[in-house]
Design a protein around this nucleic acid. Structure first.
Length: 426
DNA sequence: TGACATTTACCGGGCTGATT
DNA sequence: AATCAGCCCGGTAAATGTCA
């Protein structure tokens, strides 16, 4: 085994590692971002570099010779320039500089794609979002494109262009989805000819995008996906009380069902609300509380609707039809909502109010209720308190100022299941 | 040699991808 | 779903190179 067996592979590997090291520095530097060559070149001191261990390896001194040869060769090609230790010219390197004019060669020899090219390609991939029908997507695009144009990476995985192409495809498809939402696997199959592809490759990114840029803050990933019409399975609407529906050529009454009735997504899609036969509408956030309410208030003239946390797609369609009927027939009809007295519950209330029922009144979501159930309340951490304070200062939640203050001060929040007795007069 | 500009090192925070 | 390491970012302070 002579040196020839190792020399060439060693030199090739070293040259790549060295150039990559310098190019990494360059791509992180301000010179890269500003696009021009600054006075200070990307550089490193041999002694501080990751190459020092091999460079100073006493067990195999040929390595240093080989490394010197590689670097001298690069210097001849104008890719780097070298500064030697004093009195040890050609023997012991002090510093290595990357030369501006050698950048292209450096990339070629290192066998890697310039960051600039990656940024450019990503811009091309994202460009279709420029004219997306949703405002928040366009906002995301605008800021991201700005950053990319400024040669900054706005937190994207530069080495995954396919992933972003998929994301763009998904975003383009979302606005056209069915009103009641499309099951995830079916969506994936239609878009990618692979029922798992969406879950595996796109879902996380889409949820991340919604978290960062979407209009509403949700508690779970499912809620985020539902908000854009991607559902696990078609969901139903649960309600109790008198409602007259028209479905095709049939008129249906929900009044007679004991303990309530479920309407499938398909029914909600096809039906119209003809009349609300109750004196009041009540929406309830959680299932346990919905059952409790329905059981304890038998005989009242109320239409009770279960929202299941943040209203899912099908429920929103139902509420839209319900709200239209109310506005048409009895705009004075009282509408109340009972939910958790916490940030999520307040968001849900505001959503229902702004989207469907402008006259919506909270039920048992006030300070007396908080005080009365203090012992059953759940602890809130620092982050939660911070969010509560931010919401308090948001004009969209002006109605909730005192409640949010109470939550922030006492560091407590109340889940509605903690309320075991429903007063008769709420 | 000193003034100035730029880079580097370091930190926390957030995202990604892999793993469990 | 939770956890982990790795990476990038922006900010800071400190170090270092350039230029007159």
């Amino acid at each position: 085994m002579g040196p020839l067996d190792h020399e060439q592979p060693f030199k090739t590997r070293f040259q790549k590692r060295l150039l990559s090291y310098l190019l990494d520095k360059y791509e992180r530097s301000r010179s890269f971002q500003s696009g021009g060559a600054s006075g200070l070149r990307p550089q490193f001191a041999m002694k501080e570099s990751p190459f020092w261990a091999e460079y100073s390896d006493e067990m195999d001194f040929r390595k240093r010779d080989w490394m010197n040869e590689v670097l001298l060769d690069l210097e001849r090609q104008g890719v780097v320039s070298l500064v030697w230790d004093r009195f040890r010219e050609g023997e012991l390197l002090a510093k290595v500089y990357l030369e501006w004019d050698g950048l292209d060669d450096a990339y070629r020899l290192a066998g890697r794609e310039p960051k600039l090219a990656k940024l450019k390609r990503l811009r091309e991939i994202l460009r279709p979002l420029q004219s997306h029908p949703w405002e928040w997507v366009r906002r995301f695009w605008r800021e991201t494109d700005d950053r990319l144009a400024k040669r900054q990476n706005p937190g994207l995985a530069l080495d995954d262009p396919e992933g972003y192409a998929d994301l763009v495809r998904v975003l383009q498809a979302l606005p056209g989805l069915d009103e009641t939402g499309v099951p995830k696997r079916q969506f994936s199959q239609a878009l990618f000819r692979d029922s798992k592809h969406f879950e595996r490759r796109v879902e996380r990114r889409l949820v991340g995008l919604l978290r960062a840029w979407g209009e509403f803050e949700m508690e779970t990933e499912e809620a985020y996906l539902d908000s854009v019409g991607v559902v696990e399975n078609p969901s139903s609407v649960w309600l109790n009380g008198p409602l007259t529906l028209v479905l095709g050529d049939r008129r249906l009454e929900t009044a007679g069902f004991v303990g309530g009735v479920g309407l499938s997504a398909a029914t909600v899609q096809k039906m119209e609300v003809e009349a609300v036969g109750a004196q009041r509408i009540v929406t309830i956030e959680n299932l346990t509380s919905y059952h409790q309410w329905v059981q304890e208030r038998v005989g009242r003239s109320e239409l009770v609707v279960y929202t299941g946390g943040f209203p899912h797609h099908t429920l929103q369609l139902f509420l839209k039809k319900l709200a239209a009927a109310v506005a048409r027939q009895s705009p004075e009809l009282p509408v109340g909502h009972w939910g958790d007295v916490d940030l999520g519950g307040i968001r849900i209330f505001q959503f229902l109010k702004t989207q469907f029922f402008p006259r919506l009144q909270p039920i048992m979501m006030d300070i007396p209720t908080l005080e009365a159930h203090r012992e059953r309340a759940v602890r809130a951490d620092d982050k939660y308190v911070e969010k509560a304070l931010a919401m308090r200062d948001d004009p969209g939640f002006a109605q909730w100022g005192e409640v949010l203050d109470w939550i922030a001060k006492s560091r407590l929040r109340l889940e509605q299941e903690s309320i075991v007795d429903i007063p008769a007069d709420v």
